[in-house]
């Protein structure tokens, strides 16, 4: 009997506590920036796709939910022909972001991905690509890579000498 009254008293006291209820979705929660939510593909500071289709994200993915195919533009710049993430399989572990050598693939704080139809969870490159550089504003892979691409010839990357003249006799 006593315990019954005690319980009622505790419940009564709760009326004066701070409310724990989150008013989601009317009030959106504040997520930390490193939250591992919806995956995006970013662009480099020049506005070009950062992804160079190296396949490291897809190979590191423990559930193998990333598939892509590399291709090249006419000037040697490599990019994915298609890039597909099956979010119905994704476990948001963030290994793809860790593996990415160009900061192209990034996890965002967005977690609102609920769907009624599983098929809608298959994201293609058009769905993944954002217009900015995401969390890493400055990095541009092709500026440090030795490969020549359109607009950047041999020896024009950071920390590179101009191309060697192999016909030169100078020591």
């Amino acid at each position: 009997m006593l315990s019954l009254l005690r319980t009622m008293w505790i419940i009564f006291l709760h009326m004066f506590h701070k409310r724990e209820t989150q008013e989601y979705p009317d009030v959106l929660p504040q997520q930390p920036p490193r939250w591992r939510g919806r995956i995006i593909l970013s662009r480099d500071p020049d506005g070009e796709e950062r992804c160079v289709a190296c396949n490291l994200c897809s190979v590191v993915c423990p559930v193998a939910c990333i598939a892509l195919q590399a291709t090249e533009d006419g000037h040697g710049r490599r990019y994915p022909e298609f890039f597909r993430i099956n979010f119905s399989r994704c476990i948001f572990c963030g290994l793809c972001e860790e593996a990415c050598p160009t900061y192209a693939i990034q996890l965002t704080p967005d977690f609102e991905m609920g769907e009624y139809n599983r098929k809608n969870l298959v994201y293609e490159k058009e769905d993944l690509l954002i217009s900015g550089p995401g969390k890493y504003p400055d990095y541009n892979f092709y500026r440090v890579a030795g490969l020549a691409i359109g607009g950047k010839g041999k020896g024009e990357a950071d920390c590179e000498e101009p191309p060697v003249n192999t016909r030169s006799l100078m020591p």
Binding site: N55, S58, V59, C61, V63, A64, C65, I66, A67, L68, R84, I85, N86, S88, R89, R118, K119, L121, V122, E124
Partner: peptide, 15 residues
């Protein structure tokens, strides 16, 4: 053993 993309390569055709 490192074969990748198993659960995504055909996802555009059938989930």
């Amino acid at each position: 053993h490192r074969y990748s993309g198993r659960t995504a390569m055909r996802a555009n055709i059938d989930i």
